[in-house]
Design a protein around this nucleic acid. Structure first.
Length: 880
RNA sequence: GCCGGGGUGGCGGAACUGGUAGACGCACGGGACUCAAAAUCCCGCGCCUGCAAGGGCGUGCCGGUUCGAUUCCGGCCCUCGGCACCA
């Protein structure tokens, strides 16, 4: 074998062999050598958006997946790891506008690029199952299931509030609204109500909540909690303020607005006696009515339309209001309650109106102070004084207080008060208890071109007509080029014009497309039967699903993962799948960041330098003291660790790393950089450290090939075997718990132990042989190419497959047995000495040895021992 | 604003159910080899103090529980992710 480590040659050869033997192709119901069925394991990474560039975050995601696959395959599992492309979406349209070419062309070229960039990493994808979501044979099934949902009443039409760019005359995504302005036009964004299609995820709210709490023990706690809070179940009361307000100038003039009832929902019905106003959304019928005769109010309502629809924006903006001059009647006291318009009340949530209890709601308190509305305390906590001057935390506490100034409800605590009040409202036919979810139905309409066409036809006579199943898929024309001013499908006659399926008259196709979260809600099932022509999923799906391990970014903790769970339950209720939850275990990986450098010009504008362009200076303690640009030798600022991004020029590209060090180093370093579920920082010199380790491993094997044979059984062998099996035990645990960073450490420790043992065959020959065979198998999932090559070169391979199907090494309990154990001695919790005790020593013997230690004596001398704590095998604490 | 993470040497991080804080690696310093450089190997490396043995301090900040706290509890600060049309 070569005395030098040559990653390029080794990796090319290993990959060629695995390609030749079709090593990554998996089939259902695989069996082992004895004909026994192998347990199936489906491990899948969240599919990437084909941006064109593979970045280190992808490498981290897929390496985690690949390490898991290779480890479990050694342990005898039939493991599936597929890959595909989340190919619809906005970036393709943006690129299309910039380059004046169709999004399809850009997308397909990017897919080819990214696939080529993945290839040298040696990932064990079964490419025969590749999926591209922008292809008709995939999105046909989005359309098919959408129509089924429409049938069942799960999909429905209603208005939605969107960001509107008044200059470009187009709907904007939240991401396209920057500081309240359209990203292209710079115009102030407005809210606009337009019709759209929704999926009734709230029909599944209870089950989604119950299952995430009780049936997903394999999910990270934090993701479960985030989903629970997102669904946000609360029990409250929906009730009405009666009124006599009549419509003015519409065709139904003279009739009561909304039948004379202003409905609101509250989780604090116990504070209903403290209501001093009601607030309605600017689009609420009462606001519209009041605004028609009041120019000042009309102007305010107009002003409320400014700004975007993002929740963070709504929550942080200044709360403003204006009285309508209208009033409604308190349902219990009969008092008159003024109605205000509030910019913070949204028409699309609940009934578009809220009750105002300034004394016990922080937002209402601030609103009342601002507009000098009365504040009426109706809940008290014993020993605490209420003051209208400033908000106190306890004013909003519903657990500790009891009702006051509330007539017959005085003295009741939260729950009894809510019950009593709900009962009284119900008796008056004005309200009832209601379970409310924070979760809202999923709006899937996008006024965009590059997505799955919504399969509906608008007919002047028949209304909205579904496309008949036989006409699916509704194929998206791929040659259009958007120009930034709305959906090009609206200008494309060949797509637009169609005969009504019902009456045959000329009709128009729906031009809205589906949210790309639809595509990602079920792609992982399609991997199981990617070629199924006449079914969305087939029997092969029943073999692989539910998925055993899903791996992806924490940023998907709520939306994607909730939509996919919902979609699965819908498919289950349609008899398409037999399981409730798609992902048995979930692993959320952290993000990768990298050092960045910049120089600021006089105007404060930053120019970001590539790491290659700068040289970092260190002080004599190794701290980075500054940096200079290589071209002009002038100082450059250290920008610290930032998420890798193009704008900061700190993106590390996998192909550069592979070019310099090889794929095994790239893979091992992204695993070694930190715990896979937390964010980690890229460091070139860290990667060099891993490269150094692989080189050292190679050099050791090349130099000591002959020493690693039979021979030796003495103390040195025992010490080496103790070290190796201890580390193996830990590595085994780490593999099972996806702690791949410490797996790499374990491999380094093993090599250190092997090197320390010397290379005398007569002393340690067989122990070296065993140790190296363990090291190679522990290393293999992380750095498969070098492990494969060394496994063959050192003659460990027993069959043609090589290390890829080698058996996982077993810990030898005998090797871990020791005659003497090292224990530490503390005095009052401070470490004062170390002792060696025989394995079988009694508690008394240990205590005696501990008190006998010189340094321990020094600290205990002349002081009575109050207490002695012995933790077997670990430590003794002497309390004086 | 709301929900959820994270904070340990100069850096990335380790520490199983509360039990030796800093494994492994990087950076840095010293040395060996070399004409020289690269590569490689050896030694040192939390901070303060001491010739040394040792001692004091130390896991974001403040407080609590415990023989013992990075770990558990209460309060705060900073930071990252998400907030429904980015994916």
């Amino acid at each position: 074998m070569d005395s030098q480590y040559q990653p390029k040659q080794i990796e090319a050869a290993a990959q060629a062999e695995w390609t030749r033997t079709n090593a990554y192709r998996v089939v259902e119901n695989a069996t082992d050598k004895n004909g026994k069925p192998k347990p199936k394991f489906y491990a899948c990474s969240m599919l990437p958006y084909p941006s064109g560039k593979l970045h280190m975050g992808h490498v981290r995601n897929y390496t985690i997946n690949d390490v898991m696959l290779r480890y479990l395959r050694m342990k005898g599992h039939n493991v599936l790891m597929p890959m595909g492309w989340d190919a619809f979406g906005m970036p393709a349209e943006n690129a299309a506008i910039a380059n004046n070419e169709p999004p399809a062309k850009w997308t397909y070229a990017n897919i080819a690029d990214m696939k080529a960039q993945m290839q040298p990493l040696g990932l064990a994808f079964d490419w025969s199952r590749e999926i591209t979501t922008c292809k008709p044979d995939y999105y046909k099934w989005n359309q098919w299931l959408f129509l089924k949902m429409l049938d069942k009443g799960i999909a429905y039409r209603k208005t939605q509030t969107v960001n509107w760019d008044p200059v470009d005359q187009t709907v904007l995504a939240n991401e396209q609204v920057i500081d309240g302005r359209g990203w292209r036009s710079g115009a102030l964004v407005e809210k606009r109500e337009i019709p759209g299609y929704y999926l009734a995820i709230t029909q599944y709210a209870e089950e989604l909540l119950d299952h995430v709490t009780n049936k997903l023990p394999g999910w990270p706690e934090r993701v479960r909690v985030m989903q629970e809070n997102w669904i946000g179940k609360s029990v409250g009361v929906r009730f009405a303020f009666p009124h006599q307000i009549k419509d003015a100038d519409k065709e139904n003039a003279g009739t009561l607005v909304q039948d004379g009832k202003l409905f609101v929902f509250t989780t604090r019905a116990d504070t209903i006696m403290g209501v001093t106003f009601c607030a309605v959304a600017p689009e609420h019928p009462l606001a519209t009515l009041a605004g028609s005769g009041n120019t000042e109010l009309a102007a305010f309502i107009e002003e409320c339309k400014k700004g975007g629809v993002a929740e963070a924006e709504m929550a942080t903006m200044e709360k403003k209001g204006m009285p309508t001059g209208l009033s409604v009647t308190h349902p219990l006291t009969g008092e008159s309650v003024p109605v205000w318009v509030g910019n913070y009340v949204l028409m699309s949530y609940g009934d578009g109106a809220v009750m105002g209890v300034p004394a016990h709601d922080e937002r209402d308190f601030a609103f009342a102070k601002k507009y000098r509305l009365p504040i009426k305390q109706v809940v008290a906590i014993a020993g605490k004084d209420y003051s209208n001057d400033a908000w106190q935390e306890w004013y909003g506490d519903k657990q500790a207080g009891m009702c006051i100034h509330s007539g017959k409800y005085d003295g009741l605590a939260y729950l009894p008060a809510v019950d009593a009040i709900a009962a009284d409202l119900q008796a008056k036919n004005l309200g009832e208890k209601k379970i409310q979810y924070r979760l809202r139905d999923w709006g899937i309409s996008r006024q965009r071109y590059w997505g799955t066409p919504i399969p509906l036809i608008h007919c002047d006579d028949c209304g909205v007509v579904p496309v008949p199943e036989k006409d699916l898929p509704v194929v998206l024309p791929e040659e259009l080029i958007p120009d930034g001013s709305g959906n090009p499908l609206n200008k494309h006659a060949a797509f637009l014009n169609v005969a009504c399926p019902k009456c045959g008259k000329a009709a128009r196709r729906e031009t809205d497309t589906m949210d790309t979260f639809v595509d990602s809600s079920w792609y992982y099932m399609r991997y199981c039967s990617p070629d199924s022509q006449d079914r969305m999923v087939d029997a092969r799906n029943d073999y692989w699903m539910p998925m055993d391990q899903y791996i992806g970014g924490i940023e998907h903790a709520v939306l994607h993962l909730l939509y996919a769970r919902f979609w699965t339950k819908v498919m289950r209720d349609m008899g398409l799948v037999k399981f409730d939850e798609p992902f048995t275990n979930l692993f959320t990986q952290g993000m990768l960041s990298a050092e960045c450098f910049y120089r600021e010009d006089l105007a404060g504008k930053k120019r970001w330098y590539y790491p290659d362009e700068v040289e970092v200076k260190h002080d004599d303690k190794g701290r980075p003291a500054g940096a200079i640009a290589k071209d002009d030798g002038q100082a450059v600022m250290l920008g610290g660790m930032e998420k890798m991004s193009k704008s900061k020029n700190n993106v590390v590209e996998p192909k550069d790393i592979i070019e310099r060090f090889g794929a095994d180093t790239a893979r091992a370093y992204v695993m070694f950089a930190g715990p896979p579920d937390q964010s980690a920082a890229w460091s070139d010199s860290g990667a060099e450290g891993v490269y150094r380790f692989l080189r050292r491993l190679w050099a050791y094997c090349a130099a000591n090939k002959d020493a690693m044979k039979a021979g030796g059984s003495g103390e040195k062998s025992a010490a080496l075997r103790f070290a190796i099996h201890s580390v193996l035990k830990q590595a085994q645990f780490d593999y099972d718990h996806l702690k791949y960073n410490t797996v790499v450490s374990a491999c380094m420790k093993m090599l250190n132990a092997i090197e320390d043992a010397g290379s005398q065959a007569a002393e340690v020959g067989s122990a070296l042989n065993e140790s190296m065979s363990i090291l190679l198998r522990v290393l293999y999932p992380v750095a498969p190419h070098i492990a494969h090559q060394l496994w063959n070169d050192l003659g460990f391979a027993t069959d043609a497959a090589g290390i890829i199907d080698a058996a996982w090494p077993q810990v030898d309990a005998g090797a871990l047995e020791q005659d003497e154990i090292e224990m530490v001695v503390q005095v009052n919790g401070k470490l004062r000495g170390q002792i060696r005790v025989p394995k079988a020593a009694t508690k008394e013997e240990i205590e005696k040895l501990a008190l006998h230690d010189d340094n321990v004596k020094r600290h205990t001398e002349g002081k009575p021992v109050k207490k002695l704590i012995v933790v077997p095998g670990k430590l003794v604490n002497v309390v004086i």
